[in-house]
């Protein structure tokens, strides 16, 4: 008997009587979603800017990062200023990227996380290998909690989907928080109201 059969038959024999799955019904207290999102994401090390135009985003990016930065952009609306990303054959070619710019699908107010999938990433390594990550989300796309998030994701398919909440960080050395463990050292989020 293969291990697969052995494990499955042992599980079948030993598992208890099945119990019901619970209803998921968690009302959320009505809050200002945008404010909560900004406050939460700021508290975990992200920086959020409320903007009303793409030009404002361009100006802020130019003001924030040095002109010698290697910038990679996957957003069409910004391609005039930051070019458009050419998918490299090898993810290793992205190791020198300083700033990566991409779109996020939506933000979760309660935990400051932004959902994005491989489609928006250009290359799946990009949001992790860059030194600074810039995400743009539509200010209307802020939802209360993860329950609404999964409702929204529904049964869509992706290669990689991720909730990304702040810059990469660690507190492994004596619980001292350090931003920029292995991934980006900073996260800048533009919330655009058009």
């Amino acid at each position: 008997m293969s291990s697969r059969e052995a494990i499955l038959s042992a599980v079948k024999k030993n598992q208890p009587v099945e119990s019901e799955l619970p209803e998921l019904n968690f009302p959320f207290t009505s809050v200002n979603l945008k404010d909560t999102f900004i406050r939460t994401l700021t508290a975990i090390g992200g920086r959020v800017m409320d903007v009303t135009s793409w030009n404002e985003i361009v100006d802020n990016i130019k003001a924030t990062y040095s002109t010698t930065s290697q910038v990679v952009n996957t957003i069409q609306e910004l391609s005039a200023d930051f070019g458009s990303f050419q998918r490299p054959s090898n993810p290793h070619d992205l190791k020198e990227v300083t700033v990566a710019i991409m779109k996020g699908d939506f933000g979760v107010a309660e935990n400051g996380a932004i959902w994005l999938t491989d489609e928006a990433m250009g290359n799946q390594v990009l949001p992790y290998i860059c030194e600074h990550l810039v995400l743009v989300i539509n200010a209307e796309n802020i939802i209360p909690t993860l329950h609404e998030a999964y409702e929204r994701i529904g049964n869509s398919t992706y290669t990689l989907g991720t909730f990304l909440a702040g810059p990469s960080k660690t507190a492994d050395i004596e619980q001292s928080l350090v931003l920029g463990a292995h991934g980006p050292k900073s996260l800048l989020v533009f919330m655009i109201t058009s």
Partner: peptide, 15 residues
């Protein structure tokens, strides 16, 4: 005590 980990990655398919 964090609201969520920085990365919650959902791997559905190999790239």
């Amino acid at each position: 005590g964090q609201p969520i980990t920085t990365y919650s990655s959902h791997f559905q398919k190999p790239r």
